[in-house]
Amino acid sequence: MAIITISRGSYSMGKEVAEKVSARLEYECISREVILEASKYYHIPEIKLSRAIHDAPSILNRISGGKQKYIAYILSAFADRVAKNNIVYHGLAGHLLLTDVKHVLKVRIIAGLDYRISIVAKRDNITRNEARVLLIRDDQERQKWTKRLYKTDPADSSLYDLVININKLTKDHAVDFICQAATCKELETTESSLQKVKDLALACRVKATFLEQGFDVSVTSDYGNILVYTKAGDRLMHKLQKIVKGLDGEIKGINNIEIHSGVTAPHSAV
């Protein structure tokens, strides 16, 4: 019983691998569904959320927090989904949100540029050069996105449990490896690791609410006890307290909320 996140470069066959793994292990396979759920829950057009997760935030976006809000919505929907367990997720950033959760198998699927160029050129009926430009731009955008939001390089293999190169290895090899690794004892779901995912889902939802009101905060949750870390001074504290009061009825599962001002947020905060 595990959560499997599959991070992939564009056209690296990650989607196909994810679908095959989910079919073999009888897990649910999700990707775009997360965006649809976020769109439905927060009443934001799907296209805006898709753009937020695809394009790196510009300087203006970072100041206004527009994209950050959308990303928080998506992560909140993602964390809610994975809390149900037995999930194969393929897409951006899944592994980064779940770094501290034990029962998550983090996989990255990569493929050689030449191989990807052939696929894109054939699929879109464009020249190899055009396909190359498209792929390089796409890779750079994904890299920028992860670097700006999580300050890590998606190509860093230490972020994953398995990095599979679909070059000499095939999709079926990748499926075999992932299914074998998913049954490792270390990846068994425990009560505490499941609670961690539930806490993450809660923290993401709280963060999304704060961002909605224009406050960029970091949030942790421990068995429903929420700590909100903010850089806002005393002048804005009453506004934050007001949001906290509103949260009580709005989000289920919260035991207690505290706001910490001027304190550095821990690494595990969302």
Binding site: K102, L105, K106, R108, I110, G112, A155, S157, S158, Y160, D161, L162, V163, I164, N165, N167, K168, L169, F177, A181, C184, E186, L187
Partner: peptide
């Protein structure tokens, strides 16, 4: 990682 066919992290596996 693209220099390898497979990279495995012993943290979980």
């Amino acid at each position: 990682a693209s220099r390898y066919d497979l990279v495995v992290n012993l943290g979980q596996i």
